[in-house]
Each structure stands twice: as structure tokens, then as C-alpha cells.
């Protein structure tokens, strides 16, 4: 089983440090870990550091990997519009570092992933003709096509409608449970984190301020400190933890109702 541990890692751009002193306990295959934090907290930088695109202090320890490239990373969509069909773009992600010839097993893998994500009908569509949400699903397919054991997904649900958000997160949950993937996913929807993730890591101004079981990490105190909201976490009628936001904290005064007219 693959595992990942971060030991005092730091990273940044030029002379601007973005994250520092980030350490985690061992994160294991089979887990879905939500990476949380306000905008510009350093989530993408942390992903790029783990994936090896940024250098910096500390160590990223990966043990139990079965291949030379165990980590796949899905960055946020950059809006590029090359003349490539969805099928070709997913195949392209799979074929990196391989020979130019495409084998039947590569086709089988690509088709399996498109099917898992429910986007086989987009197979022949040009990437440039897709909606933002469809592009995100294809981005996830590109990451999965690389046969990863550790999957890093940077806000993969930001452009998806509610049903597709649930579809994608359910699939990630299933891949972790059934195939032993370690999934680390940056999310802004804390309700999704509570529902789908086993653990949560919270970045605040470049530091990791919490890492542990989701229900223990996402607390009213944390929400107040990181997101500047007053909120409660209560079970819904079906027993799932539910986040209820009461209001935004005005840093110069008391909480104001989120629903005030």
C-alpha cells in the first residue's frame, strides 16, 4: 500500500516563500484527504511541491510505490484550446514517457476511465468545444489515465454542477476504497469534505494548521479562524454532518447574519 508523508516542507516562487514547515502524519492508500484553505493559502503550491514541480526545503516521502511515477496531478484548468479530441487528450496523458505506438491495452484503459467518469459521449469532441465543467471531468480523466497510486486534484469540482460534483467525489471515494488510491483533493465546499473525505489538511497563510480526521479538523473554531465565518456542524436527518453558516465575521465588529437583507 502506497503512503505519503511530508516532513517540514517549504516552497515558493523566486524570493517569495508561499508554504513553510508543512508536516503531515503518514497518509495511506485508501484514504481521501481534503486539502482546505482560503484563496491563496498555498494549496496549489503544496501540490506542485509534492508532485516535484517546485523545489524547496524538507522531504516528500513516498513509500510502497509500485511504479516509477506513482503520483498524478490535475492542475486547475488553464483554458487551453488545442485541436485535440477528448479521447486523444486522455490517451496523450497516458502515453507520456512511452513509445509512440498505441497498444490495445492503452485504448482499453482510456475507454474504461471515460466510462467511469461518464464522459464516453464526449470522446470525439474537441477540447476547445467543451464547457468548463466538461473540461474538469476530462482533466480528471487525464490524471487517472496515468495509472496513479497517489492522485492530487486541485479544485476538480469548481466548475461542476452539483450532481457532477457528487458523481466525481463519489468516484474518488470508490477508487480509494476499491483500488487503494490515496486521493488528496483541494476543495472549497466544506460540506463535500465532511461527506467524502476521511481526513482534512488545512493550510492557512502557508502553514498547515490542522491535519487529521475530517470531523475533528472542521470545527466552528477553525471556520472562524481560517474562513472568518461563524458556523455550526450538525447532523442532517440522514445522519450526515452538515455545515450551517450563520454569518460572516466582520473583523472590526461582531458577526453579521449571512442572510441579512
Amino acid at each position: 500500500m502506497v503512503s505519503l508523508r511530508l516532513d517540514d516542507i517549504s516552497a515558493g516562487y523566486a524570493s517569495r516563500p508561499v508554504i513553510a514547515g508543512v508536516s503531515t502524519p503518514e497518509l495511506r492508500g485508501g484514504q481521501v484527504v481534503a486539502l482546505l484553505g482560503a484563496n491563496a493559502a498555498g494549496k496549489s503550491t503544496l501540490f506542485r511541491r509534492i508532485f516535484g514541480l517546485l523545489s524547496g526545503g524538507g522531504q516528500v516521502r513516498i513509500d510502497g510505490a509500485a511504479s516509477a511515477r506513482p503520483v498524478a496531478y490535475m492542475p486547475q484548468d488553464n483554458g487551453a484550446r488545442p485541436v485535440l479530441s477528448v479521447y486523444e487528450s486522455v490517451l496523450l496523458a497516458r502515453m507520456q514517457g512511452r513509445r509512440l505506438k498505441v497498444f490495445d491495452e492503452d485504448h482499453a484503459k482510456v475507454e474504461e476511465i471515460l466510462s467511469l467518469l461518464g464522459v464516453t459521449h464526449l470522446r470525439g469532441r474537441n477540447l476547445g468545444d467543451l464547457s468548463g465543467g466538461q473540461r474538469q471531468m476530462v482533466g480528471a480523466a487525464q490524471a487517472l489515465a496515468q495509472d496513479p497510486q497517489i492522485l492530487l486534484l486541485d479544485e476538480p469540482t469548481s466548475a461542476l454542477d452539483l450532481s457532477h460534483q457528487i458523481d466525481l467525489l463519489s468516484l474518488l471515494r470508490r477508487l480509494a476504497d476499491e483500488q487503494g488510491l490515496l486521493v488528496i483533493v483541494a476543495l472549497h465546499d466544506l460540506g463535500h469534505a465532511l461527506r467524502f473525505a476521511d481526513a482534512a489538511m488545512v493550510l492557512h497563510r502557508g502553514s498547515l494548521i490542522a491535519c487529521g480526521p475530517t470531523a475533528e479538523v472542521i470545527t466552528p473554531d477553525l471556520l472562524r479562524e481560517v474562513f472568518e465565518v461563524t458556523a455550526r456542524i450538525e447532523p442532517c436527518t440522514k445522519g450526515h454532518p452538515q455545515l450551517i453558516v450563520d454569518g460572516r465575521i466582520d473583523m472590526s465588529g461582531p458577526a453579521v447574519s449571512a442572510f441579512a437583507g
Binding site: F51, L53, R69, A72, Y73, M74, P75, Q76, N78, G79, A80, P82, L84, S89, L92, A93, M95, Q96, G97, R98, L100, L127, G139, Q142, A143, Q146
Partner: peptide, 23 residues
């Protein structure tokens, strides 16, 4: 150039995406 075919194609997806594919 041909032996870099997959990597060069990936560059048209943008830097971030190409890097994420290991280019």
C-alpha cells in the same frame, strides 16, 4: 523531434497541464 511527439503535443495543453503529465 518525432521521438518527443507525445511531449510536444502535450505542450499545446498549456504549461501547467504539460508539466502535470511529466513533461
Amino acid at each position: 523531434l518525432a521521438r518527443r511527439g507525445w511531449s510536444l503535443t502535450a505542450m499545446r495543453l498549456g504549461d501547467a497541464k504539460a508539466e502535470s503529465m511529466g513533461v
